[in-house]
């Protein structure tokens, strides 16, 4: 490689953008060419100075709270709540009336648990087991929209996990104490979906158990409710893939931006573990 060939690649080399043969070729050329080596050194020297001298501006202390307030007032949330089908309301009324006060305080108390552990999550996998008499296609779509919004909000707020534990015997009672049902909780670490913890989420006006699993760098939210009869949900919404299955006394709805194959794998593991009980 001569200077004419290497010249345009020096910056890409310094930026870690070259691989394999081209990287080795530039490396070799730099060892033998003072002018290209100086160009390379200039880029590295500038970078060192930029990182040492140019401030990385930290967000002002109040910004996170102001954003949180704004997000809490988001119109989509109001719209989603307004669209909650009336048929969901009886569930909220008879099951949760006694717990409303305790649940309202819950997020404040558990906020510290969010931490930074789940920063960088890019996937949303939401499975829920739906427990109402009749839900039509549109209602399912509304629920998916609410579930996705809930996951996003939890991520932004660092509240993905309210009870952090990989132990299903910790997570399950925690959820059972706060709900009128005891959701199936299984650690799927052996299958590549380690249990990270759980939280409560309000979907369609009802408090729902939410299990948080990891999958590589993704975070998976599994919303679980007792089974009922309703139409299958849509297969995709706003760019998220949706998979649906019924079994072991539960209805499962999985929503994700990950491949449908991953969703199906996750579903199969959940179904398998639940039917073993």
């Amino acid at each position: 490689m001569n200077c004419e060939q290497a010249g345009p690649l020096v910056a890409a080399y310094a930026d870690g953008e070259l691989e394999g043969f081209r990287r080795h070729a530039v490396e070799r050329h730099l060892r033998g060419c003072a002018s290209c080596a100086a160009q390379h050194a200039d880029i590295l020297a500038l970078r060192a100075r930029l990182r040492a001298e140019v401030p990385y501006f930290a967000a002002p202390p109040g910004l996170q709270d102001r954003v949180r307030t704004l997000v809490a007032r988001m119109p989509p949330d109001r719209a989603a709540n307004a669209r909650v089908p009336k048929r969901w309301r009886w569930l909220g009324a008879n099951a949760l009336a006694g717990r409303a006060a305790a649940l309202a305080q819950a997020p404040e108390r558990w906020r510290w648990l969010g931490g930074g552990a789940l920063a960088g999550c890019t996937a949303t996998v939401l499975a829920f087991v739906v427990g109402t008499a009749v839900i039509d296609w549109h209602a399912s779509q509304d629920l998916v929209a609410q579930a996705v919004t809930s996951h996003v909000r939890a991520t932004l707020d660092h509240r993905l996990i309210e009870v952090a534990s990989s132990d299903q015997h910790t997570v399950k009672p925690w959820l059972s104490q706060r709900l009128d049902y005891s959701p199936p909780v299984h650690d799927l670490a052996d299958d590549g979906f380690p249990l990270l913890g759980g939280r409560l989420t309000t979907l369609g006006g009802q408090s729902v158990a939410t299990l948080v699993y990891g999958y590589r760098k993704h975070t998976i939210d599994v919303f679980v409710r007792p089974q009922a009869r309703e139409a299958p949900p849509p297969r995709a919404l706003r760019g998220f893939n949706v998979a649906h299955a019924r079994g072991a006394g539960w209805d499962w709805l999985v929503v994700s931006d990950a491949e449908p194959a991953v969703l199906n794998a996750c579903l199969q593991k959940l179904l398998r573990e639940s039917s073993r009980q």
């Binding site: 954003v67 704004l70 997000v71 988001m74 989509p76 890019t122 996705v148 919004t149 996003v152 909000r153 932004l156 919404l237 706003r238 760019g239 998220f240 931006d257």
Partner: peptide
């Protein structure tokens, strides 16, 4: 941040 929630489908 408001836009991020609106466009979450594009993530």
């Amino acid at each position: 941040c408001i836009r991020a929630l609106k466009y979450i489908g594009s993530l």
